[in-house]
């Protein structure tokens, strides 16, 4: 079976790759495009470590075929924040010690950014349910939820 040729946009850059039909977007990001910030924790959509944003929707990279990327716009952790300035969510995670091992962190940051993009003032409950698809085994979520609240305040120009 010949590989498929896919043209897509990743973190604003035009990207082309070849893939087999069963390959997931996660496989291609990590193994073909070298974007290893997106992690694999389960491969079944249950942990959120591979969270990416596709055409504005938060999805799991492991639950999307790479061939489906044609014509789409994809944002990964590598596309969040600028070289000279971290995104407020990233900065809040640092300041609030919202990570321990750091493995789930890229997925949480992508998911939290997607939340704040559509809901700039989420309640604690809204944050917790939005992030329920992102497993963290280290923190007990307390400092993660606080960091998202902190980032929301920063983004509204109200230092928390």
């Amino acid at each position: 079976m010949a590989k498929s040729h896919v043209s897509t946009t990743v973190n604003g850059d035009p990207v082309e790759f070849l893939c087999d039909a069963p390959e997931t977007m996660l496989d291609v990001l990590r193994n073909t495009l070298g974007l290893t910030g997106t992690k694999e924790g389960c491969g079944t959509g249950d942990c959120g470590a591979c969270s990416i944003i596709v055409d504005g929707r938060l999805v799991c990279g492991c639950l999307m075929l790479a061939v489906e990327a044609t014509g789409k716009s994809i944002t990964t952790i590598e596309g969040i924040g600028a070289p000279d300035r971290l995104h407020p969510v990233q900065q809040a995670f640092l300041e609030d010690a919202a990570l321990q091992c750091g493995f789930c962190t890229p997925g949480f940051i992508v998911a939290a950014k997607a939340l704040l993009d559509r809901n700039p003032d989420p309640s604690e409950t809204e944050i917790r349910y939005w992030l329920a698809g992102n497993l963290c085994r280290c923190t007990g979520y307390d400092k993660i939820v606080r960091a998202v609240q902190h980032a929301a305040a920063e983004m509204k120009g109200q230092p928390a």
Binding site: L58, V59, C60, L63, A114
Partner: peptide, 9 residues
Amino acid sequence: IGSTQVQGR
């Protein structure tokens, strides 16, 4: 059905 991520698909 599933997480926010799953909801997106």
